[in-house]
Design a protein around this nucleic acid. Structure first.
Lengths: 341, 341
DNA sequence: TCAATTTGATTAAACGTTACATCACTGTAA
DNA sequence: TTACAGTGATGTAACGTTTAATCAAATTGA
């Protein structure tokens, strides 16, 4: 029943050769207007659609890219809507270029053979795994690739990253501007050259610029998740330092933090000011709504796809490194130090 | 440079025929242990991986399924992490069966020709579009298909749905049990046979059972989004009825609602009890944490994949309709009517 | 010992395309 | 007139697999 109609059938019905039909489909311009019409009409009638695999087999491109989200099944970051937004951006961008997107949640020991197997046009890799063996494997494939939020050192890799340093700086400056001096940083895992690392650098720069000495005591490396934030609250509550503000390096950890503080009798912003990072959608509906560093995640995804497709089509020798700007969004969770009760 | 090694190369090097290599790969059992070893060794050495498109071309299956999320670009439900969790469940389930997942955010007038084009093994369709032309097209394809949260009436379609009626009942009963009598329902768009419709039915059943007459005045059909919830707060605040509790038919709308109430000077749970639906991850970290109807979204996605793959492989003539149970999770946002201030 | 069977391997056609080489015309320039 | 270019079409090899049809050799049974 599912015997699909092929280019041969079209050729037979139209009384032309398969080559001609192929030429019509691919608009090579080597066909007369008459036959083009004739063939197209029959294609319509028969609801013919060319087989992707046959094409792929000949052309060695699949019009398929994969977006690799390493932590999909690890549960660490799964609940950060931020990543989904990224994926959405990718899907969105791809859709405009008639390629389709394979979604791939990998574990660290993924073997990536599917790239060769499926003749993928390209790969978008989300999240740092700079030092993992996976990266190595991907590179060996020699397939076009764009790294999103990965902060890899090699300058010849295509990357889209956020201006995290600026974000860290901006947020810290905001707090200092409000009169806070003892500002904790809820950094998340702080690995050299990672997202949080850069945000931390910005934090340090702001402090230094304002003559505030940084105190390692104030750096909390709890996981950058909602639970991590929740747990960090304990540490802050029992800290010897008189912390008056916290810079959480992700909105989700800020959420957990605020809730955690609440549970030990500290409320935001009256007892402590809190600023987040990412500006995920919920932040404006939280109580209190969250001051945060905003990034345009959707366009981040789209930018990545565009870079990838340029690379695939060899269109433009585009820049290999795009840094997405950040901005500060002030809401209710941060108030002047003086207004503290 | 990217001249990949094919089955022919392997055959040549191993000094056997391509058929033999193919037999080794597919473990047809028609090959001697000796040659199996010999060939496998060379396959390893050459890092050979069989071309998916060539296989596909022969076998007419792509080991590819698509998960269709209709509102990906519509923005209506994009911010409900619930849907992403569903997608994650699908990816997760698929991964265990060595098929890969194409992510597809469609608009209503999607033509679905890619199904034929790519020889997709199957389709998982998320979200209601029962009366759209898209459904019609999908059905015509004759491709295995599972509908997730789609509530279609045809009994011969494969569907995975939530026991929404029970959820609506359970939540309402909970509120009634706490002594509430004037219970508003923040239903979202209330179309016959849709998710919210069933939840609403459950709501009505609980009321009736307890001898409370339902009041159309108390039904708020605001969009089931965070903004929708926010806007609903106004209506509730200005309602003539003395509403003491609200059943929001999604957690995100509950979030928006609580924030909205807060902004007009009503706080939860002291002024109003609020119960949500879905149990998305954030709910437990909200202030107050949200009482809600819990569903296991991840397993929902996985169930759908499993059904789909059973259908594809013709494994079991499984049941076509799976209803996922719900349960009540009580947290801080609902309190006894008597304790109201 | 010889026929019958089993085991292990090969040949070649097919899947649905694309693209190169070829060809039959029609017209045009010398 | 002949040569030549241009136009529009065709024939066919190739892409990398799978699989049915064969086949040769080894093993078995009587």
């Amino acid at each position: 029943m599912n015997n699909k109609v092929s280019i041969k059938d079209i050729a037979r019905i139209a009384n032309v050769s398969v080559a001609t039909v192929s030429n019509v489909i691919n608009q090579t311009g080597r066909v007369s207007a008459n036959t083009i019409n004739k063939v197209n009409k029959i294609i319509q009638e028969q609801q013919f659609v060319p087989s992707a695999s046959a094409r792929n087999l000949k052309n060695k491109n699949s019009h398929l890219i994969a977006v690799v989200v390493p932590f999909l099944e690890k549960g660490i970051l799964q609940d950060n809507p931020f990543y989904w937004e990224l994926v959405r951006g990718v899907e969105n961008g791809a859709r405009n270029h008639e390629v389709q997107v394979i979604l791939l949640g990998t574990n660290e020991d993924e073997d990536f053979s599917f790239v060769k197997q499926r003749d993928l046009d390209g790969l978008i890799v989300v999240g740092t795994f700079g030092h993992s063996s996976a990266l190595q494997k991907v590179m060996e494939m020699g397939v076009p690739c764009v790294f999103l939020d990965s902060y890899l050192s090699s300058p010849d890799l295509y990357q889209v990253n956020l201006d995290d340093e600026a974000g860290g700086y901006l947020g810290t400056k905001h707090l200092i501007g409000l009169g806070h001096k003892t500002i904790a940083a809820l950094t998340g895992k702080l690995e050299e050259g990672g997202v949080n690392y850069f945000r931390y650098q910005g934090y340090l720069r702001a402090l230094q610029e304002c003559g505030i000495s940084s105190d390692p005591e104030l750096v909390i490396e709890e996981f950058s998740s909602i639970q991590g934030g929740y747990q960090a609250a304990q540490k802050i509550g029992s800290s010897k330092s008189r912390i008056s503000a916290v810079f959480a390096f992700s909105d989700v950890s800020a959420m957990g933090l605020i809730r955690g503080l609440h549970d030990i009798g500290l409320s935001v912003p009256t007892d402590l000011s809190v600023i987040g990072f990412d500006d995920i959608f919920y932040t404006q509906f939280m109580i209190p709504s969250l001051t945060t560093i905003r990034q345009d995640v959707l366009s981040k995804g789209q930018t990545a796809v565009n870079m990838l497709l340029d690379q695939i089509n060899g269109t433009v020798s585009s820049t290999r490194n795009v840094t997405i700007p950040v901005s500060l969004t002030v809401r209710q969770s941060t108030i002047p130090y003086s207004k503290k009760v």
